[in-house]
């Protein structure tokens, strides 16, 4: 893409191995990946392929068993717990499938949370920035509602506001629409898109929804802990995804001959 400066994210030969006594689970097997600032990347792949594991790695919630991860040139692999906490606080915003908002805490206070752990932000600045972030996601009129008093889509938008409030370089979303209906999903995705295009924020999202994947500028397909496709073309990605399925699942007897296109919208990969 661009050849100036260093990339925002650089993973080289990253492995994640869970040692469960008897068995070893290799969730990531030698992932190499470079993401530049301002990209919009969708991570796709069947269940259990390691998408969340990779996201957690990228988000500095976890660290690789092997390999190295440079975030903005900083080595996140060798960093202390506190160092990674600082990176999460300053550089990364998270959006989760199940929103992960603090219960019985107002929207604005939820959004303030990252600023609470940032040094040198006064109470009035905190409030101001939280309100701004909520306005940005269109919730300026819901400041003091608790999560329980908001719809799923609104809750997810609060979560997006929380992810944005620290002006992070990257916004990571692990199946952000997994718990939303298709209409609200579109709203949330539209919001992410706007953020990417207008604020230039880097977005990495995990999704099973082809409609969402379609809108990404770049698609990574993960299979068995490896990146099997890295493309800007959705058709290529789709083929790669389907090959996985065809490979994994014996076609049911009543399905027509191979190569027939599956109807869209029912394309959630199986696990």
């Amino acid at each position: 893409m661009n050849d100036d400066a260093k990339p925002l994210i650089q993973l080289s030969d990253v492995w994640k191995v869970y040692n469960l006594g008897e068995v070893k689970v290799e969730a990531l097997r030698g992932v190499c990946l470079t993401i530049e600032s301002g990209e919009y990347v969708a991570l796709m792949g069947p269940s259990g392929s390691g998408k969340s594991t990779l996201m957690n790695m990228l988000g500095c919630l976890d660290r690789p068993t092997e390999g190295s991860y440079l975030l903005d040139g900083e080595d996140a692999t060798s960093m202390s717990r506190n160092g990674r906490a600082r990176l999460r606080n300053r550089r990364i915003g998270f959006v989760f499938q199940n929103f992960n908002l603090l219960a019985r805490t107002s929207a604005v206070e939820n959004v303030e949370l990252p600023l609470l752990y940032a040094r040198g932000v006064s109470a009035s600045q905190r409030r101001h920035r939280a309100v701004e972030a909520l306005k940005q996601v269109g919730l300026g009129d819901r400041l003091h509602h608790h999560p329980g008093q908001l719809s799923g889509g609104q809750q997810q938008r609060v979560a997006v506001a929380r992810a944005l409030v620290n002006d992070p370089a990257i916004l990571m979303a692990d199946e952000p629409t997994g718990n939303l209906d298709s209409k609200t999903s579109r709203e949330v995705i539209q919001l992410l898109r706007t953020l990417n295009e207008e604020s230039g924020i880097t977005i990495i999202l995990v999704t099973h929804d082809q409609d969402i994947g379609r809108h990404a500028k770049r698609i990574l397909v993960l299979h068995d802990g490896q990146i099997v496709e890295d493309t800007t073309d959705f058709g290529t990605a789709l083929r790669s995804l389907h090959r996985d399925e065809d490979h994994l699942v014996v076609p049911p007897p009543h399905t027509p001959a191979q190569g027939a296109k599956r109807p869209e919208g029912t394309s959630k990969p199986m696990g």
Binding site: R86, R88, N89, R90, P114, R162
Partner: peptide, 16 residues
Amino acid sequence: TREIGIRMAVGARGGD
């Protein structure tokens, strides 16, 4: 536990 996880995800340190 989940609250603690959320706080950590947004940047709380062990000390916090």
